[in-house]
Amino acid sequence: MTDIPGHLPHRYPFLLVDRVLEREPGVRVLAEKLVTFGEPYLQGHFEGRPLVPGVLLLEMLAQAGGFLEAESLHGAAIFLAGVQDARFKAPAFPGDRLRLEVSAEGSFGGLMKVKGTVRCEDRDLCTATLLVKRL
């Protein structure tokens, strides 16, 4: 799936998924984010030493989690409601092809719990469990 803006409500500079490679609604999603020097947040994080902020790795996982929904989220809003057991093991740099893997743990009352991993060349950069709320 390449029509990412057709599915998520996020837009520049905060659309952090480039491609969805595999997708099983309600079960798991494998997506990609390609990091470039052109990312606006790398201008100041940090000057002369660009690396992707850890919180944005979490946001990438949350956005990838949006593709667990069968329907397009266009117009709907999803919010991050909780973060559990987040681990940042290595930084992501310009040029990195990030693989975003998320799997659904369960949902109740409009809340969904997902487990996610950001990977680059078979190295885990970040693992976390996220709670996402759809409004």
Binding site: G82, G106, F108, G109, K113, L131
Partner: peptide, 13 residues
């Protein structure tokens, strides 16, 4: 709260 509710639903299962 509602987050606890989700945790309980998963725990009960």
């Amino acid at each position: 709260d509602s987050i606890d509710a989700l945790e309980l639903v998963l725990g009960i299962e």
